[in-house]
Structures are given as structure tokens and as C-alpha cells.
């Protein structure tokens, strides 16, 4: 299934398309409001990523239009505007999520997965990665059918890794995804290490191979090899 991206900044569009392509998503691109309107009904998209600030219109109108057309696609607003009112307005218009620029591509992918799960699966979905099985709706995790007791944060971290499998994710990206505004400003990412350590230990204790690899201190890669 495709993803529709409506974004006027060509360079950012390119980045999103490349990263999503690595994850196996095919992307339709619209660089302005009118192209966006024209492309709204072309496919039954898995998810739409809509920038609010478009040169010839308001992205919010696009969101409303999509909802009026009974589109069941997940919609994520990507915007440079970071105000609670704008978030509320965006969500009221029918968006499923709101991502503030500048964002991590890894976070974008995690959110796309999450929104897609909510809009296209009727719960009961099972995610698998190697020996790991996760039921996101139930907040449960299994290694070879043996339940692993992960905390909420550890499970979120695991889902984040699974959404970005085989990619390098940075510790800043993890912190932003798990703690949002609380992620920054402490001058260290100690709590990222702690959660990561605990998650790895619990999984390995259950007999799971260690899938997390440290990549030159830049970040981590979750992969089977």
C-alpha cells in the first residue's frame, strides 16, 4: 500500500521518500495543495503525510477534505508549527497524529506504523521479528511463546526498533520518541541506555538472541544478522 506525501520542501520530501522506501513503502508525492487534492482519491493510501504550510493552500483543508471523502487512510500532519492549539485543531480536523518539524525519519516511520496499525488493523495484530512476537494492542511480548514482562517504555522501545528494523536509529531519536519534550535538556541520554539495557537483558534472559548492535556510538541497529 502506498503513502501519500504532501510537502513543498523538495529536499525534505526526497529524504522522507528514500527512508520510507528503505522500509518498503511506496510513496506518491505532491508538492503543493492542488496536486495534493488531485491525488487524494487516486489510491486507498495506507497513510498520508500532510504538511500544513503549503504555498497555495492550507494543509488542514486537505485533511478535512480527505475526511469528507470518507477516506480511511491514516493521516499524520507534519508541521513547523508547534503549538497546542494547532495540534488540537489538526487532530480535530481528522488527523491521527501530529509531527513537528524537524523530526527524526525513524520517528516518522514508527508513527506511520503505529497509525497504520490503528487504522487498518482491527486490533489483534501480531508483529514478529526473529524470535520476538509482539501484540501491540495487548501490550504483550513473547520470545518463542514465552511471555516476557516488559515495562510500557521498554515495549515502546522494542516497537520503535521493530518499525525501524535494519536501520540505524540515533539515541536522540529514541529519546524524542519515548519521552517527547522530556527527552531533551538533560545533557545526557543515560535513561535511554538504562531502558535499552533492561530491554535487552529481559529479552536475552528469555532466550532471545541479541538483535541490538551499537553502530560506532552513533546509534543502534536492530537486525537479525
Amino acid at each position: 500500500m502506498q503513502i501519500l506525501i504532501v510537502e513543498d520542501e523538495a529536499s525534505l520530501m526526497e529524504s522522507m521518500v528514500s527512508y520510507l522506501a528503505m522500509e518498503g513503502f511506496r510513496c506518491e508525492q505532491a508538492s503543493d495543495f492542488h496536486t495534493g487534492v488531485a491525488m487524494l482519491d487516486r489510491h486507498d493510501y495506507l497513510c498520508m503525510l500532510i504538511d500544513l504550510n503549503l504555498p497555495d493552500g492550507d494543509g488542514l483543508e486537505l485533511v478535512k477534505l480527505a475526511r469528507e471523502n470518507k477516506s480511511e487512510s491514516g493521516i499524520i500532519i507534519i508541521s513547523a508549527r508547534n503549538a497546542i492549539e494547532q495540534r488540537v485543531e489538526g487532530l480535530k480536523a481528522g488527523a491521527d497524529d501530529y509531527l513537528v518539524k524537524p523530526f527524526h525519519l525513524s520517528e516518522l516511520v514508527a508513527r506511520v506504523h503505529s497509525v497504520a496499525r490503528r487504522t487498518h488493523m482491527d486490533g489483534g495484530e501480531v508483529l514478529r521479528f526473529g524470535a520476538i512476537k509482539v501484540e501491540p494492542e495487548e501490550h504483550t511480548c513473547f520470545v518463542e511463546e514465552q511471555q516476557v514482562d516488559l515495562t510500557r517504555k521498554e515495549l515502546d522501545l522494542l516497537l520503535y526498533f521493530m518499525a525501524n528494523r535494519n536501520r540505524v536509529v540515533t539515541k536522540e531519536g529514541i529519546a524524542d520518541y519515548l519521552w517527547g519534550e522530556y527527552g531533551g535538556g538533560y545533557g545526557s541520554y543515560d535513561f535511554v541506555y538504562t531502558h535499552l539495557k533492561n530491554m535487552r537483558r529481559k529479552l536475552m534472559d528469555a532466550g532471545c538472541p541479541d538483535y541490538v548492535r551499537n553502530i560506532y556510538g552513533v546509534g543502534y541497529k536492530f537486525s537479525i544478522d
Binding site: 525534505l12 529524504s15 527512508y19 523530526f103 546509534g219
Partner: peptide
């Protein structure tokens, strides 16, 4: 916007 571009490019490069 430029920050978003730099950030995303760096992230792509890391891959």
C-alpha cells in the same frame, strides 16, 4: 525547514 532537511539527510547518511 532547513533544520528538518539537515536532520533527515544526516539520518539517511547514517544508514
Amino acid at each position: 525547514t532547513p533544520l528538518a532537511v539537515i536532520k533527515s539527510k544526516a539520518e539517511l547518511l547514517i544508514q
